[in-house]
Design a binder for these strands. Structure first.
Lengths: 231, 231
DNA sequence: GGCTGCATTTCGTTC
DNA sequence: GAACGAAGTGCAGCC
């Protein structure tokens, strides 16, 4: 990996056109040829970049560019598209290269999958007498997160989200529409379960007779000692 | 901005739990305290990070950690949540700091806005005799991208996307439902226009009587000489 | 390889 | 500030 701190301007032409005026920035050139342009703030997202696969070449600045103070120019061309990144360097403050080797990669634990597992394990969170049918109940249009039965023996389809948005309600609606065509299952009720449910989503759900349940991740985790060993 | 190349392991606890085994990586500490952990490949996304606002502190490794070869430890704590990032450093290969100043920021040109402008300008792309009513037609649930009239004088609501997905069809469906309650407008037809329309979205749209139109961005741009000056 | 759904999404705009 | 929609979204899983 090559790390350069330089006063530079950057131009990107591809899916959109973008320009970075002259300023001091960090330029990162990765082993796969990808280039990242970072400022000293913002978020993890670079101001501008070129994704792999691509090729980076140091080219001669034009006469006009030289007159403007450009001492070096990078031309980064994406291999599979017309995306181009051009970096015009006016001053180099630092330039070093390092051999990092291949990264073993990130190990992740739980997100929505864990919410689903916890709720399936404690399905009575939805109400007295609820029992699990199965997780990831497959249908023609995709898997229903949880299928269960309520105290009356009626089938209930549960859609789980970390953040409950309108599109989650739409998704559950499509499942319910399909499931209710099956005479063996029909009638199937819907539950929209999320850690946080947006007001618009709640309104839409209620309008369609879908019950909303707010999930307390910490409480669900606390109910179950066996998850403790995972942490 | 501080740039460190180090052999390190990283642990994140917050919205999820994640671990990076010992390896050589680039650590970036920005002026706002945010920390980025980059490998020598992948994409512009760091392997791990802490978003601002947060505080970074160099702390003493525990005795156990010291025995494992840890020579320094970073504790990064998010200011507004319980998110924590811990970096255990085993070897420092590079460490430098640089004053970058405030970045003037990125200047972007067009994406979906441009598609919308171009289609509005060449509304006959949708068919002979089409005429524009207006762009960004406001309704109680949001703006319809384009409202126009077809050859028969009937009102047509157009939803424009770069990538036509199911949620775009759902969005247009909600608009049409609302618009068709207005006796002055009713009946309102729907057109789902996108550069690329996913099969599932197309099926759903057709099922609801919504016409799908694939937009050719380059062709639209070519129809109009006046856009040339923008590039 | 393409499509689908999730993301520690991030980011901008609007209400 | 919250909410909603777009992103040069990226990314993983599955068909």
């Amino acid at each position: 990996m090559r790390v350069v701190i330089a006063r530079c301007s950057v131009d990107y032409v591809g899916r959109l056109t973008a320009h970075l005026p002259l300023a001091t920035r960090l330029l990162m050139v990765k082993a796969d040829g990808s280039v990242l342009v970072h400022s000293d703030g913002g978020s993890y997202k670079p101001l501008n970049w070129m994704a792999p696969p691509c090729r980076m070449a140091e080219v001669d600045p034009s006469d006009d560019e030289r007159e403007d103070g450009v001492i070096a120019a990078w031309a980064v061309q994406h291999t599979k598209s017309e995306d181009r990144l051009r970096v015009l360097i006016h001053e180099v403050l630092h330039d070093s290269s390092h051999d990092l080797g291949i990264d073993p990669g990130l190990v992740k634990d739980g997100v929505e999958a864990q919410l689903q597992a916890l709720l399936a394990q404690h399905i009575q969170t939805l109400g007295e007498g609820y029992s699990l049918i199965r997780r990831e109940y497959m249908t023609a249009i995709g898997p229903v997160d949880i299928m269960c039965r309520n105290a009356d023996g009626a089938t209930v389809a549960v859609e789980i989200k970390r953040r409950g948005d309108i599109d989650g309600v739409e998704q559950l609606t499509r499942y319910l529409e399909l499931l209710n065509r099956d005479p063996h299952l029909q009638p199937v009720a819907g539950v929209f379960a999320a850690q946080q449910i947006k007001p618009q989503a709640r309104t839409l759900a209620q309008d369609r007779g879908i019950r909303c349940v707010t999930l307390d991740y910490e409480a669900l985790k606390g109910m179950d000692d066996s998850t403790a060993r995972l942490f």
